[in-house]
Amino acid sequence: MNVDVDLSPLREYLAAEGLDGYCIDDDSSDSDQRYVSGFTAPDPFQTLVTQDGVHLLVSGLEYGRATAEADADSVTRLSEYDYQELVVEHGSHEAKSRTLAAFLEDHGVDSLAVPRNFPTGTADGLRDRGIEVTVEPEGIVEEIRATKNEGELEAIRESQRANEAAMARAEELIAQADVADDGTLLVDGDPLTSERVTEEIEVTLLRHGCGLDDTIVACGADGADPHNRGSGPLEAEELIVIDIFPRNKETGYHADMTRTFARGDPDVEARRRYEVTRDAYEAALEAVEAGATGAEVHDAACDVIEGAGYDTLRSDPDAETGFIHSTGHGVGLDVHEQPSVSPSGGELEAGHVISIEPGIYDPEVGGVRIEDLVVVTEDGYENLTDYRVGLEPTVE
């Protein structure tokens, strides 16, 4: 998906530092590469940003598609620099260095900024050819990516609609399951497992053009570990945490949502923790607006949870139960990106897309987490999540 990206902050950095260009050398699994180039490829290619445009260096295999799809001012093939002949004569590493150096020379680049994950071997090869290579330490492209334009927001909305369909399928399975005498949830006489619910979630996502590598369906003590994927039979009267964070296969943009359910009658303490988490989630949402900091939003959630008598990492940095993670994070081409909604979170800006996801955890009780995805606006937020919050699972 091509988006109308604004690279002016990067170009301002180059001008201020007296550098000719900025180069990314990676495949499109690197979100900065995908964002700047507007192109996807499974093998590394080079994207050069200069004051006059964005320029790609790709293999012959990718040339036709890059010419048609990339958000670039020019696309050049490796063969224009006799790359294969250089490989035969000098080996692949030396051939890459010579080819990229020639490509940079053609674009008037003698000095170059590169991201922190730029290959060391490539950087050294360019330096050997007299090109100044400077690591850009602040992650300017990631900062640019943090503010979404309308095209990106629509892509995230589309991913979140798929997410909601998958969550509805999971909730339906739990709501309609029978309960065995020992409390195990059953579907067609067989135990309803985390794995079965995960499978239904992932199939639903695929039907909506999305996929993901990990899904969390964690029951009881499993749910007290925020990143435990969960396994085995689901039980009545236990808290079940479901966290789904798919990526759209076409656009590359993620969504993120968590709900906690319980069939039957969970104990008083489990219900109390659910209500406190819900209050913290609502307090954090109320704190979101442009100009507020991620730290302030996190504090709003902590105030509620601590006020109810539970530990947070703010009140006890060594806490192993209670609220033991940050309130949220940016979501976009990466499921975890800038900005941070945490003790170190900086100022929020209109267009930032963030999760709000407080939780309370204890293996003796289970885990509770409630998460929505919102976009920051000048006077508050727009909630990108259209899914009810409730402990008792229902069927639409």
Rank of each mutant, 00 (worst) to 15 (best):
Q176F: 00
Q176L: 12
D178F: 09
D178K: 10
D178L: 08
D178A: 14
D178W: 08
D181P: 02
D181F: 08
G183H: 12
G183Q: 13
T184Y: 10
L186M: 15
G189V: 10
G189Q: 11
P191L: 12
P191R: 10
P191H: 12
S194R: 04
E195D: 12
R196H: 13
V197L: 13
T198A: 14
T198N: 09
E199S: 13
E199M: 10
E200I: 00
E202V: 13
V203N: 06
T204Y: 01
T204G: 01
T204Q: 02
L205W: 05
L205E: 09
L206R: 15
R207Y: 10
H208P: 04
H208F: 10
G209P: 05
D213V: 01
D213T: 07
T215Y: 04
T215P: 07
V217W: 06
V217L: 06
C219Y: 05
G220F: 05
G220I: 03
G220S: 08
A221E: 15
D222I: 02
D222L: 08
A224D: 07
H227F: 11
G230T: 04
P233E: 14
E235C: 11
E235N: 14
A236S: 14
E237G: 06
L239K: 01
L239G: 03
I240R: 02
V241P: 01
V241L: 09
I244Y: 03
F245C: 07
P246K: 07
P246W: 10
R247V: 13
N248E: 14
K249I: 05
K249M: 13
E250M: 04
T251D: 09
T251Y: 09
G252P: 09
G252S: 09
Y253D: 07
Y253P: 09
Y253G: 09
A255F: 07
A255T: 07
D256P: 04
M257D: 05
M257Q: 14
T258D: 06
R259G: 11
R259T: 14
T260G: 09
T260Y: 07
T260P: 05
F261S: 02
F261V: 11
A262H: 08
A262K: 06
R263V: 15
G264A: 10
D265M: 10
D267P: 08
R271D: 00
R272D: 00
Y274P: 00
Y274Q: 00
E275L: 03
E275C: 01
V276E: 01
T277K: 00
R278Q: 15
R278V: 12
A280Q: 03
A280T: 04
E282L: 15
A283T: 11
A283Q: 09
E286G: 14
G291C: 06
G291D: 06
A292Q: 15
G294N: 01
A295I: 02
A295E: 13
V297G: 03
V297L: 03
D299C: 02
A300H: 01
A300G: 04
C302Q: 07
D303P: 05
V304C: 03
V304K: 01
V304W: 01
V304E: 06
E306M: 05
E306L: 04
E306R: 05
A308Y: 05
Y310C: 09
